[in-house]
Design a protein around this nucleic acid. Structure first.
Lengths: 194, 194
DNA sequence: TTTTATTTGGAATGATCGTTCCAAAATATA
DNA sequence: TATATTTTGGAACGATCATTCCAAATAAAA
């Protein structure tokens, strides 16, 4: 009887995500979102409540997608150290492939919204903590396996790795230079050596 | 004969800078700027042309001020390595003192405006290159003086240092934890050892 | 094909945006 | 103190913002 939904919600979220990444939350208008998603205003409001709701859904979707993509990719190896290396390899490829310099939606959101929107700020902060903790588990396992130095605590090393990730995300958005990114990753990872 | 300007332009720029840092360019309204500066709309438009002009002037003033503050501080020592260490010490103090998490106006501007405003993006990019180059000169001198390892090129090390700076700026805005910042700086600087 | 529930497009709305404008206030000189 | 010149406050402007609303279009079921 009823007419069924004419669009794929996930596809819409990914279109919206791209615009939010490029222009930021405050730099994106509903008109931008209408054009990018191909949906009508009514459909957007009906499905996502409002602009803020769409932003939150896009952020959550981005987080899930990134996590599962990374998990899938890291099945390639059991070595904790190689998981770290692979993560930075993939990051470099993502940055260099990102011709529009959209960057990471979560990092962008954290930077734009910390002082403005507690709900978004908390979400971004939580996601960042999760990412850092992933590094922590790998470093800890790597140290146990003798792949990673014990000169520094697992906590300190994982904080360093995640800090380098954040720096690269900033460089990727502002001044993405292949040589620079390679240098940074090489030096960042050298700290893990005995 | 004429009535003279009733306000200090530099003081106004610093008030504006604080608001732009917290809320971003698109998140800041002219009303916010009127309240923060204490000036009237007319005076703002008469002095800075428009919102965008005020933003650019605030960015340029921030850049000059930061550079001269750093230069002044680093007179304390002649050792290139100690200049680097001091720079990170000061950065940590700035981040921890920054209760509003305003962060660095230049980094914030680069992140918010890359895809939106070429003029601002170029200014931020130029300022970032300058900062990285400052590290480069110190690393090069430090290597020549035997204070810094030659395992990596001066270019690679300076890129690494600046990348760590950018990461810390992001963390300072989103999740500023004293312990984390100390860890990151310690590991970042350890790379300079022989 | 007709019916029915739902989506859809686009006009309309009120709020807020950046900007302009001008009469009134203010100050350094005469 | 009076005059001349500039700043100032605040109202007013058009543009754009997010959001609402409804008639028309649409697709599944009868």
């Amino acid at each position: 009887m009823p007419k069924v939904k004419q669009f794929d919600e996930v596809a819409v979220l990914e279109k919206a995500q791209a615009v939010f990444s490029e222009k930021g939350y405050n730099g994106t208008s509903m008109d931008d979102l209408v054009k990018a998603t191909g949906l009508s205003r009514s459909s957007i409001y009906d499905t996502f409540t409002d602009k803020h709701g769409l932003y939150l859904k896009a952020l959550n979707h981005y987080r899930c997608e990134q996590n599962s993509n990374l998990e899938e990719l890291l099945k390639k190896t059991d070595s904790p150290r190689k998981k770290i290396t692979l993560t930075f390899d993939v990051l470099m490829k993502m940055i260099l492939a990102d011709k529009k310099r959209a960057g990471c939606l979560m990092v962008n959101a954290g930077m734009e919204m910390t002082c403005i929107d507690k709900e978004v700020a908390d979400l971004a902060s939580d996601s960042m903590e999760e990412s850092e903790h992933r590094f922590y588990e790998w470093v800890k396992a790597g140290q146990a396996a003798g792949e990673i130095t014990k000169r520094f605590s697992a906590k300190a090393l994982s904080r360093h790795l995640y800090n380098s990730y954040l720096g690269l995300r900033t460089i990727g958005r502002t001044r993405p230079d292949p040589g620079a990114i390679k240098d940074i990753i090489r030096v960042t990872l050298a700290v893990l050596d005995q």
